[in-house]
Design a binder for these strands. Structure first.
Lengths: 344, 344
DNA sequence: TTGAAAGCGGTACCAA
DNA sequence: TTGGTACCGCTTTCAA
C-alpha cells in the first residue's frame, strides 16, 4: 500500500461521548419517556406539537442515534434476519438471489445481516449466531445439524430456514437438490445417444457441496442403462484442463457434463486445442446458463437453474416468524431444465 | 415452490424461554457474578475447580448462550466490523478480497457483519449502521459523505474506512482509482498505434461507480495526443452486442476498451460474427484478468488488477481501532497493469 | 472464593 | 400530556 500525504487534521474536535436519549431529554427539557414516545411515534400516547418539535430539534442537534442493542435488550427481540456470508465467491446466479432476498426482507422491515463466520463450523457457528439473538436465521448449504437448530431456537430465533440438499430436524427447508441438475444433464446426454459420460468434479475447495450432488445426479440418471459414468477431477486452471484434454482419447468418453458453464468453457477450449471435435467426438454440457455459454462456439448446451424468487423466500421467512410454532415446511425450489444448444 | 408433505411434529415441546445467566446461576447454585467469571475465564478472579465445573455443566444443560446485545450495552462497545453488503452481484476478484478480509478480521477477533442496506442511501444508511454501534465501518464505493462519517464517529465507531475513488473527510481511505485501469488500457492501445478508441460503458445499473472512472482514465491517457475516444453504451446482452457490432464499421474505431473481460468477450464474439478481424481491424482490451480471457481466441489482452491483501486491510482497521485519534490515512491500493495477449 | 448491587440505553407501565 | 421508574441480561466493583 502506498501512503499518501495526509491533509491537516480537521479543526473541530470530535464530541467524545455518544449522545443518549437522556442527553436529548435534557437538552429538550423533557423526560426520557417523552423522547422515546416522540422518536418512535408511539400512537398510544399524544404528545403536543411544540414538545415534539423540541425533541426532534434536540435529537438533530446532538446527532442522536438510538442504540440498537439497548432496544433489543428491552424489547426482548430484534428484527434481524441473519445469514452466514458465503465462504466462497458466489456466482451471479446465487448473488442475484441473495440480493433479491435482502431487498424483499428489507421491504418487510427486517434487517438483513450476513455474518462472516469464517473458520467456524456447524453448531459452533450456530452458537455465534445465537449470541446476536436474530429473529430468523437463513442457512445455506450443509453443516448445520439439529443441535444447531435447537441452539438457535432456544436463543429466541422464531424461524430457522435451511437452504440446501436435505431437511434438518426442526427447521424449515428450501430443498435445493443439485442432483436434479446432474440428472437433467445425464438424461439429456443419454437421450442424445451418448454412453461413456464424463463428469467434471472441481478441485476447488468449497464446491463439493454442489459438485457431489451434481455427480450423483448424473449417476442416478444413468443407473440401469447401458451408459457409464467417469469422474473427472479438474482444477480451474488452464494447465489442468490441457492435461485432462491430453488423455482424452484414451479415456474414450463421448460426452462430458462439466459441472458448470465456466468449467465447460475451460474444458471445451482445451479439447478443441487438442483437436477433439465438439459435439461430434465429445458432447459437452455445462450448467447455470450463464452468458458465456451463448457466446462459445459451438454454443454451449447447459442446464438452466430456476431459483425461487427472493420475494417468495422473504414471505416464507415472514410467515415462519409470525407463526413460530407451525410445523416446519419443506419446499423444493430448484428447477433444472436443459437448454440444448450446439455442443451436445 | 412445491410443498412437500411434512414429517410429524417432534414430540419434544421446545423450551419456551431463553435461558439467561441467572438461570445458569440458579441451577449451579451460585451467583450470576460467578457465572460471568467462569464463562469469561476472568483472570483477575480465581474460582475453585468444582464451582467452575458446576457452572459449565449448568450452562451446557440449559443450552445457555450469552446475549450479545446485553454484553455490548454493558461494555459500551462491541467488536463488530460492519460493512454494507454489495448491492450488485460482485465479481470473483472482489468477492475473493472480501473473503480474505473477513478471515483476517476474524483472526483479529472481530466479528464481521455485512449489513443489507438495500434502498438506503448515503447518510441515511450511515444512521442505520450507527444504530448497531460497530467498532469499525468499512464502506465500499461512493455515497457516504462527511456527515455520514461524522454520524458513525459520534455513534462510537473508532474507525471508518472508505474503499473507493475519493477520500472522505474524517475517514481513512483505501483509494481504488479505477481511472488507472482505463489509463492503462488507453496508454497500451495508443502505444500499439491505435488512434480511434471506443470505450464500452455498461448499461447495467450499479456499475457506473466503476465504468465512469475507467472511461475517464482512458480519456486522461489519450488527452493531448492525436487519438480520440468514443463512448459506447452497451447492455450485457447478445442482441445489444450484435447491434453495436452491426454499426461497427461506420464507427470507424480501430480499438476498444471493453470495460472488463466479460463485456470484452461479449463484444468480441459479436464483432467476429460480423466479420471484424481482431486485432487486425480492431484491437480489444478487457480488464480484471479473468480466466475466460485466456480461453478466448485470440487470447484477450486485459488489465490485471492488484487489490490489497485482506490481511493488510485488516491490519489497517485494527490499527485505526486501537488509535482512533490518529489522523486518517489514505492508501492507494489499486494496482493496474496491462497483460498483453493476442487481441491488441 | 463468592455474593450483592449498580448501571449500560431504551421502553412502557402507572401515576400525576 | 408528561414524568417517574422498573426492567431487559450482563459485567464489574466492592464487600464479605
Amino acid at each position: 500500500m502506498v501512503q499518501i500525504p495526509n491533509t491537516p487534521p480537521p479543526a473541530s474536535p470530535a464530541p467524545r461521548s455518544v449522545p443518549t436519549s437522556a442527553d436529548v431529554a435534557r437538552l429538550a427539557g423533557v423526560s426520557r419517556a417523552t423522547v422515546s414516545y416522540v422518536l418512535n411515534n408511539t400512537s398510544a400516547v399524544r404528545i403536543s406539537e411544540p414538545t415534539r418539535r423540541r425533541v426532534h430539534e434536540a435529537a438533530e442537534e446532538l446527532g442522536y442515534v438510538p442504540h440498537a442493542a439497548a432496544r433489543t435488550l428491552r424489547a426482548g427481540h430484534s428484527r434481524m434476519v441473519l445469514m452466514p456470508a458465503p465462504a466462497v465467491p458466489v456466482g451471479p446466479l446465487y448473488g442475484q438471489f441473495i440480493n433479491e432476498l435482502q431487498w424483499a426482507l428489507g421491504r418487510l422491515d427486517y434487517t438483513v445481516v450476513q455474518h462472516g463466520s469464517v473458520g467456524l463450523h456447524g453448531d459452533e457457528a450456530a452458537r455465534a449466531w445465537a449470541e446476536l439473538r436474530p429473529v430468523a436465521v437463513l442457512v445455506p448449504g450443509i453443516g448445520l445439524g439439529p443441535e444447531g437448530v435447537a441452539v438457535l431456537k432456544r436463543a429466541g430465533a422464531r424461524a430457522v430456514v435451511t437452504v440446501g440438499p436435505a431437511r434438518v430436524e426442526g427447521a424449515h427447508a428450501l430443498l435445493m437438490d443439485h442432483g436434479s441438475v446432474g440428472h437433467c444433464a445425464g438424461s439429456h446426454l443419454h437421450a442424445r445417444g451418448r454412453r461413456r459420460i464424463g463428469v467434471v468434479v472441481p478441485q476447488e475447495p468449497g464446491l463439493e457441496a454442489f459438485s457431489r450432488p451434481r455427480l450423483d445426479g448424473v449417476r442416478r440418471a444413468l443407473y440401469g442403462t447401458d451408459a457409464s459414468v467417469a469422474e473427472l477431477p479438474l482444477a480451474f486452471d488452464e494447465r489442468a484442463a490441457a492435461e485432462l484434454a491430453a488423455r482424452w482419447r484414451e479415456l474414450g468418453l463421448d460426452a462430458v457434463f462439466a459441472y458448470n458453464d465456466e468449467y465447460a468453457m475451460l474444458l471445451m477450449c482445451a479439447l478443441q486445442d487438442e483437436g477433439i471435435r465438439i459435439p461430434d467426438d465429445t458432447a459437452v454440457v455445462g450448467a447455470d446458463d450463464l452468458m458465456i455459454g451463448r457466446l462459445l462456439r459451438p454454443r454451449l448446451s447447459t442446464v438452466h437453474i430456476e431459483l425461487p424468487s427472493g420475494r417468495d423466500l422473504a414471505d416464507l421467512v415472514d410467515r415462519a416468524v409470525r407463526d413460530p410454532d407451525a410445523t416446519p415446511e419443506a419446499h423444493r425450489v430448484l428447477g433444472a431444465s436443459v437448454v440444448a444448444r450446439d455442443s451436445s
